[in-house]
Every structure is written in C-alpha cells, then in structure tokens.
Design a binder for these strands. Sequence first.
DNA 1: TTGTACGCGTTATCAT
DNA 2: ATGATAACGCGTACAA
Lengths: 325, 325
Amino acid sequence: MPTIKDVALKAGVSATTVSRVLNSRGYLSDALKKKVYAAMEELNYRPNELARSLSRSRSNIIGLIIPHVSLPFFGELTSRIEEHAYRNGYKLLLCNSQQDKIKELEYIDMLRASRVDGIIMGSHTLEVEAYRQMNLPLVTFDRQISPDIPYVCSDNYAGGQLATTLLIEKGCRKLAHIGGHPQLNLLSHLRYEAFADTAREHGVWQTSLHTDNNSFDMQAYERLLEQLFREHPEIDGIFAGSDLIAAYALKACRESGRSVPENVRIIGYDGIALRSLFHPAISSIRQPMDEMGRLAVELIVKQVEGTAVAAENILPVELAQGATT
Amino acid sequence: MPTIKDVALKAGVSATTVSRVLNSRGYLSDALKKKVYAAMEELNYRPNELARSLSRSRSNIIGLIIPHVSLPFFGELTSRIEEHAYRNGYKLLLCNSQQDKIKELEYIDMLRASRVDGIIMGSHTLEVEAYRQMNLPLVTFDRQISPDIPYVCSDNYAGGQLATTLLIEKGCRKLAHIGGHPQLNLLSHLRYEAFADTAREHGVWQTSLHTDNNSFDMQAYERLLEQLFREHPEIDGIFAGSDLIAAYALKACRESGRSVPENVRIIGYDGIALRSLFHPAISSIRQPMDEMGRLAVELIVKQVEGTAVAAENILPVELAQGATT
DNA sequence: TTGTACGCGTTATCAT
DNA sequence: ATGATAACGCGTACAA
C-alpha cells in the first residue's frame, strides 16, 4: 500500500503538503491540489485510517453492543444506527453480547482498547457500575445508568397505556401481560407498569407473566403462554412485551383453539416490519426506530465533539393497528 | 488513558520489556511478569489497538458488507459471523450496502482505508472487476468472482431440487418460482435452474417471476404474487427464493382465498428462525448458517495467515418441513 | 506557501 | 535478560 510519502515523492512535494491537501488546511493553489490529487490517483492512494486515528486520537468508530442482531427488533435498529453512523462519517463495530455477562465485559474492554469514540449500549447484563466506569462517550437504550449518561427510549409508559386502553376499548376484560424479566432499572418495565395502572383505572382484571432471567429464550415464552392458558383459560386480551412475543402468543392461541381477535386480542410492542406478514397482522406499539438510531448516533457524535447533550431522550410511540385487536 | 510508558515507569522497566510481557516474547522471569502485570492492573492499562495495528500492519478487523442486516436471513447470518469472528479474536465492522452501488463502493474504500484484514461480501451490486482489484483477503457468499477468490454458499442446486421434488411429490402440477433478479453470476440462480430442470424431468408445468432489479423491495414481491395469481390462477405449488418471499406468498394466498397447503403448497429457502412462527409454519430449505459464518471467517483468517484455501465451499442444505407443504 | 521535526502508542531490530 | 532506537503512517506546531 502506498503511503503519504510515496504520494509526496511522486508529486514532488513534502508529505506535510500532501497531508494539507488531504485535510484542506490553509491555502492551497489549484495547481498544487491538482498535482497532489493526480499523484494519489495514480498510486491509488488511501490514507491509512489507523495512522490517522492514532495521530488524532480519534477513530471515528462507534461500538454497538446489543444482545442479538438476529432478533428482528435489534436487526432493524442496528440497520438504522448503521445508516446514521455512515452518514456522519463513522464506522460501526458490531458486538453481540448474547446476554452473556462475560462476553459483554470483554467487548467493552475490546472497544476501549480499539479506541472507539463511543459506545451505544443496547445490552444490559452488567451492573450500572461497570458502565459508569468506562469513561467514554456512551448512550444506552432503555436504561438509565446515571444522570450524566444519556439514554434513548420510546415512551414506554405511554405505549403501555395505548396498548392496554385499546384492548379494554375493544372489550377485553381479562388481560395478561407477557414480558421479559422485569428488571426494575430497565425502562421497558414502564410498559408493564402502565399496563397494570391502566387496567386498575378501568377496573379490569389483569395478570402478568415474566421470564426468570432477562434472556431472549423463546422457548421460555412458549412455556409462559402454555402456563397462562392453563391457569387463566378465560384470558381475552394479551399485551406482549415485543412483537416476537406477540407472534408466539398468536401461535399459542391457534394451537389452543382460540381465534384471534374474536376470542383473544393481542397487541405487541416494537413495530417490526415483519409484523404485517403474520395472520392476522399483529397490532403493535411502534417505536420510532429510525429516530432512535439517528438520535443515538447524534448523542455519541455530540459527546465526541464536546457538546452538551440531553440526558433523557424519550421518543413518542404510535399505535400500529393490525388485525389482532 | 495510560500508555505503555506509564506502565514501564511504574514497573521500573523499559517500554520494550512491558511490550515483551504483553506479547509473551522470549524468557520472562515470574518476578518480572508479576511486577509488570501489577503495574498494568494498577493503571487499568489496555494496550492501544490502533498503535498495535499500525505497528503490526494487522488490524484484526473483518469488514462485513451485506445488503441489509434488518432482513432475517442476513441478520441471522451476521450473528453467526460475529460470533465466529469474536472467537478468533477478530472484530467485525458492519456495512449495510442497501443494494446501493455507490454506498458499496464507498464502503469497500472505507474498509481498505481502515486496513481491515479481510472482507466478507454478502452484497453484490458491483461488477466482478471491482472486487478483483481490491487485493485483500476476500470471501463472498453465493458469488464466484474469480477462481482465486473463495466463496461460500449452500448447495443451491440441490436445494432447488429438494424443494421442487417435494412440491411435485405432494401432488402439485402447476408450479411457480418467485425470486429476485436472476443475475446469472449469482449462484442462487441455481435454485431456479434446479426448479426448472426438476419440473421438466417430471413433466410438470412451471413458470417463474423475478423482480427487475436485484433489490429486496418487498412491495415488488407483493406485485409479483398478485400478477402470478392473475395470470395463472390455477397455480398449486410455489417455490419462493427466500422464506421472506414465502411469507408474502402465504399472505397473498390467504388474501386471494387460497388455503395453504390444501390449494397451494409453498416452500421457501434459507430456514430462518421465524419461519416456524407463521401459520402454517413455512416449509423451507435450510442453509447451514452457522457453518457458513464459521467458514467465511475461517477463510479470511487463513488467507491472512497465508494458508491456502479452497475456492469452492458448497455446504449441504436440509429440508425443514413446515406445514405449508 | 511550504518544509522540518516531533509526537501518537506500539513492535521489531539490534546491542549489551 | 533487558534496553535504546528506529519504524509503522499520519498530523501539526514551528520555522523559514
């Protein structure tokens, strides 16, 4: 690979001058620019980003840690984050924590060692202390680490209200919420709170089932649904913690001879694209994934540039009507 | 951030010695190691990977270019690739080409500039020449760039045979294949060839519809299916180019009053996890995604290490019986 | 306007 | 066994 020196030599100038042209620093005559660019072209020169990063102590890399890219929600979110990172001239280092404490810890270490400019955290297996200590621009999804670490989330409480109200309006009187482990420090917990509050306000009976650990083990949801229908066969409304869980609920209904939405109404959360391919199309509370991705990147970029950022970034949700309600 | 010099100072040795300890080069007394490690610990030192990479001219980063991580198949594949990269001590730089020629080109440039050790290409919008020129360890999925660039793919032809044979055995006599643009240089084209061959061999009528461009525009598939049922209302067997397309086909059947599998049988390709959540569960030809990911990473690693690698890596497929056949 | 010298943090070479 | 020195490729004060 040609270096800046090779270009300098070919263009008959010093490396410094080439660097100046490269970064448009100070005045540069057209003749000079032309000469240098020609040399670059001829050598098919690309500045070595490693050297640049080392010298500027800035890598233009953002680390993204999420549980699983293979889950629809995280896949879509990652896609948006990648797009906005790209637009801002940042590269994205992808890390799947797989909800594994050790892997997540190792990844944080790896990212620090790689001198990423910031980390977007969508995985939360560790205690807050671990995140606080890393002393790097950080943004989290759905979790409040400390007052000075910004987070992005959808309006979980409003979403929970929206979903629950809809079920009640449609006539449901025996509600159930199925979700992941209700870590109190995770903001998605607000979906459940809103669910319980709204049901209470309307005097509607409700129950809820959660997985033991904070995993995305899908078999756990199958068991939970089986348990739900066994213990409460008269359930007529389900608010699922994600669209994926909603899809499982839909399946469980079919397999137990319940028709949706006639016998049981179901609404999910997230608003993943595949939602509409199911039958019936799954109703959901749509998170503004593009805006969430855009904002997460912006919050990193601003921190890198030393600009102040808002700590709380709660984005509005929207009802995405399907046919399961 | 502390540097190697800080560690050296604190441990009372030279930076060179610290580097030796760090890389286990030559003989190192236990006392020395202990001393150095203690200093590192105390300072919470992490070697700067940028500097290491620059010095070793090796970044331990693999670039992954795919059309969209948000598509289930690519999401799952990316997940496997990430896992295997991680196990091999590599980091993954994620690039969504979005099937955009310019973006893909810019990404290749960016990856070269970032001195990634190799590129795994799952996106193919450019001409072969562009890939040949990049002079970097490369692995492609489902595309043969040149005899010396290894590729990984599922046994597309066998998969096409398997799917088509199944449809015929189940009694289908009017077959249709729905797929993406049949770029002749894409190996997934073999799925279609096998489909046509197998139908011919059994004397079964067949037709096929493809999108114009090689995009993943899902609306295009909706139109295609609408067109299919309009022009050939008596279709009773569909081989879809992907499970996602199969899901669209399933939906189109429902909306046109066809029941699956009674009136129309459907089989997809890929074997994505969500396949089983549909109703009926989508039958599919399963690609060995984990093995594909493992192999892709291995092929990069081996090239980096200078080991010879096989050019053709065709992995066996498997019938994943669902309820749509 | 352009070039020299040095620093970014690490590794490799060559001494000692 | 350990250390001084140069080199990796680039950016940037400072000087001219």
